[in-house]
Amino acid sequence: MKKIVYLFSLSLSILVLSCNSDADVIETSTVEITFDNRISANQNLTLGTTVYVNQNNESVVTNELKYIISNIQLTQDNGTIFEYPKADSYFVINEADLSSLTLNLDGIPVGNYTHISFGIGVDQSEYPLDGMLNFIPTAEEAQMIWNWAAGYIFIKFEGTFTPQGGTESPFVIHVGSHGQNLDNYKFVTLPLANTMNVNAGTTASVMVEAYIERIIDATNQIKLEDTNNIQVDPVNAPRIATNLESMFSAQ
């Protein structure tokens, strides 16, 4: 019996000694990212209600707004980039579902952060790596995946528009990547208006504003009267994807 006890304590001490990796463990904390979907910096969005006038003088009402955010990265003031684990880094932001608008990211190293980066859509050049196949059930529930092609829908923007003096008609914009030659995935890096200090024990937060008027009015202007149905559209889908690069701003 004594022998056993001896052996036990010996091994225990080996156990303890062999696990000194604790010494260089980095302290981490939680960051909360909230998406605020708005018409513009100074106009709020309420689905089905808010009317705004686009640059082609069309009055636009949004009925549905969803998009996929992926591959989140945070950059510290010393240039260190923290990449959130890719497999856990796919999210559907759905304006109609309040709980989808806030992302809670654990395990963020403490430090002072100056930039946030993320993908809009899913990086199909990485198929099928990085856990993107486990995003299927979530995307399926949010109807952000096609069932006639194997791919995610990066953004859905639907509603009605009324040209000046015209009548109200629906519009549908669904953009994703198609096949190997139409890659509409975009990756953006946004400076934070104020440095975000991530400290142990508290939750830091970032507010990302999305100005949805820019979906059709930014680098490229889309007149809904000319094209009110943009789905598998090799000309307009990439133009929208380019616009999405300037849709976000981080506070």
Binding site: L133, E141, A150
Partner: peptide, 29 residues
């Protein structure tokens, strides 16, 4: 894959028959 190349990776092809309403009409969940 498929007659029109609607899947660009073999691992993703089954998403189409599984979720398509005229094929297996099912969800992964």
């Amino acid at each position: 894959f498929n007659w029109d190349g609607a899947a660009i990776h073999l691992d993703m092809q089954p998403i189409i028959p599984i979720t398509n309403e005229v094929e297996m009409n099912e969800s992964f969940t």
